[in-house]
Every structure is written in structure tokens, then in C-alpha cells.
């Protein structure tokens, strides 16, 4: 059994999710110790438990230690089963993180799978559905990975109630990804909100327009229906090949619309100041599919501790070399 130290590097939930994905893909039994030791409230949270349970479901794994607060988890995967799965997630847990965990395994299954995910679609501290749909999946498409998604309902904290489905085709022949130069970018900003006064969205967009010089015609408000109110600002830079950099900021009570916008603006400025194609979060998500597929090269921002930890986990399972070379200010070339 392979032992993984959950406290290594940034010591968070990503170690757990990557380990589960790789355990299934390589059919390696694992024991993760010191789960989330780097966090204030260590051990498995509700959200992490959902990832464990979803993984268990798609490969019939033998699992122990799957409870809230648990610091040690053993996971012995069985054969990956393609199929139609539905993963209801309580307490507005992020459905996107569950998707991210089970996706690599289902790519290696023999048949096509469909997932029905319900819960949160736009959560803080997790990729949003917008990111999955506009940034992650288009990039995977360049590797000849075929996933289609459809959103049925939005889900915000604390109720959730969002719903979306994904169809995952098994990997055929993957191609190496090449994202070296940006080319022309289409700038836009979208506020997705439910049951929140319209001036909130307007103020967020006004702030984005003022500070990022995005033209009025590229600012959108997307009023949606959801079980509870919610507000998410998404700043997007779309490339000509269909991929995009998506930067989200979630509104909440006690935080002014301008502050919500400023959080996204700060990350957007960093991206614009660099010449890299792939942003921090997309970089994180792409490494695993690349390592399982045919690798490739891309330019990205200075890697975060989160990314470096993720690479350590990937390399402990797979015989692959992932290298970072600094080629400019806040710009690195990644080879895998």
C-alpha cells in the first residue's frame, strides 16, 4: 500500500483529490495520512468526504477512515466502472471539485459515462462551473479529450441546489497540448447572480470597466434562478483557439461590490502583466490529464505552492517528468 503524507507542501484538499484520482487510474491502493494537516480545521471536511464517496462509487473501492474529521484514509480501488452516476452534494459543497476528482478515472474507463452533479456550482475556494466549462474543458479538447457539459440550475452557498450534467468519452488517442503564445484575446466580464439587487452587479462591472478598460459591450449581467441568493463576478480572457482564462470572485454580505471586483481585478492584472497563456488555476488542473495522456508544453505564471505540491503527488504515482523553466517575468514554460 502506498503511503501519502497529506501534510506535504500546502497540505490541503488537493493532495487528497489528486491522490484519489491517481489511485484509481493506476489501480494503486493508498493510505493518506495527516489529511489537511496544514489547515486550521484538519482532517476530512464534508466536501472531501463527497470526493471520497464519489470515487468509491465509480471503482467499487474498499475504504476506511471516511468520516468527517478523519486524518487517515485508506482507499483500495477496484476496476473503474463507466456508467451513469449521480452525485448529490449537501451543504452547497462544490460539485466542481467532485467532478475534478472522478474525471481522470472515467477517462480511462472502457465506455462513455454521464454524471449528474448537484450542489454548489459557484463556490468560493473552488473552481466554478464557468471555469470548468470555458477554461478547463476547451483546454482538454486540445488534447483530444471529449467532454460535454450542460448546466440545469445554479447553486450558491449555503443552499446549493445547483445541477449540471457531464458526458465523458473515454480517452482514445491523446495529443500533446501546446499553449505557448497568447495571440489575440477577447476580454469580457460577466456577473452571474440570483435574488440580488441589480445595482450590485452594475457596480461590480463598473469597477471592472474602470480598472481593466473592458468595453461596455463586453460586460454582461446574467440574472439566474437559484435556491438561495448568490453573486459571482467572472473576468474572462478568451483565446482564438477556444481556451480561456477565467478569473472568479464571489460576492458576499459585508463585502462591497467594489471590493468583490477588486479581488478579480488583482488576479486579472497579474495575468495581463505576464505573457503566459495558462493561468494559475488552469495550470493546476491540466497537469494530471497531461501526465496521464501525451504531455505537452505551455507557458504559465509563477507556480504556486499548490501547483508544486500537486506535481509531487503526480510524480509519486507516475513515471513522468514535469519541469518549470523561467522564460520571462512571471512567465514559466512547463514541459510534461
Amino acid at each position: 500500500m502506498k503511503i501519502i503524507d497529506g501534510s506535504q507542501g500546502e497540505g490541503g484538499g488537493q493532495i487528497l483529490r489528486s491522490s484519489l484520482a491517481l489511485s484509481m487510474c493506476t489501480q494503486t491502493p493508498i493510505r493518506i495520512e495527516n489529511i489537511r494537516a496544514g489547515r486550521k480545521k484538519s482532517g476530512l471536511g464534508h466536501q472531501h468526504l463527497m470526493c471520497v464517496q464519489a470515487s468509491q462509487m465509480i471503482c467499487n473501492a474498499k475504504v476506511s477512515g471516511a468520516e468527517i474529521g478523519s486524518q487517515t484514509l485508506t482507499f483500495e480501488p477496484g476496476e473503474i466502472q463507466a456508467g451513469d452516476y449521480s452525485f448529490p452534494i449537501s451543504t452547497a459543497g462544490s460539485s466542481c471539485l467532485v467532478f475534478q476528482t472522478v474525471l481522470p478515472a472515467l477517462l480511462l474507463a472502457k465506455r462513455e459515462s454521464t454524471l449528474r452533479l448537484s450542489g454548489g456550482t459557484h463556490n468560493m475556494m473552488a473552481p466554478s462551473f464557468d471555469f470548468i466549462e470555458r477554461s478547463f474543458i476547451p483546454a482538454l479538447r486540445l488534447m483530444n479529450i471529449d467532454i460535454s457539459t450542460e448546466l440545469h440550475a445554479y447553486g450558491f452557498f449555503p443552499v446549493g441546489g445547483g445541477e449540471w450534467s457531464a458526458t465523458i468519452k473515454p480517452l482514445d488517442e491523446t495529443t500533446p497540448i501546446m499553449l505557448m503564445e497568447r495571440g489575440e484575446m477577447q476580454h469580457s466580464a460577466i456577473v452571474t447572480q440570483a435574488k440580488v439587487k441589480s445595482h450590485v452587479a452594475e457596480r461590480e462591472l463598473a469597477q471592472v470597466q474602470k480598472k481593466l478598460a473592458i468595453s461596455a459591450s463586453d460586460l454582461h449581467i446574467n440574472e439566474v434562478i437559484a435556491a438561495c441568493p448568490g453573486n459571482v463576478l467572472s473576468v474572462q480572457f478568451k483565446h482564438t483557439d477556444g481556451t480561456a482564462e477565467v478569473i472568479d470572485s464571489t460576492g458576499r454580505r459585508g463585502l462591497s461590490a467594489e471590493r468583490v471586483a477588486d479581488i478579480a481585478i488583482k488576479d486579472a492584472r497579474r495575468y495581463l502583466d505576464s505573457t503566459a497563456v495558462v493561468g494559475e488555476y488552469l495550470c493546476d488542473q491540466l497537469l494530471l490529464p497531461m501526465a496521464l495522456g501525451s504531455g505537452g508544453r505551455f507557458t504559465t505564471l509563477k507556480p504556486s505552492l499548490h501547483t508544486l505540491t500537486n506535481i509531487d503527488v503526480i510524480q509519486s504515482f507516475l513515471d513522468c517528468e514535469i519541469t518549470f523553466t523561467e522564460i520571462g517575468e512571471d512567465c514559466f514554460e512547463v514541459r510534461c
Binding site: I68, T91, P158
Partner: peptide, 11 residues
Amino acid sequence: TLSLLMHHDFQ
């Protein structure tokens, strides 16, 4: 009362 149901580390 409802806030107690919203924590990811307390089920």
C-alpha cells in the same frame, strides 16, 4: 440554528 448546518467540518 441554520448556520450550524452550513459547516463543511461539522455534519
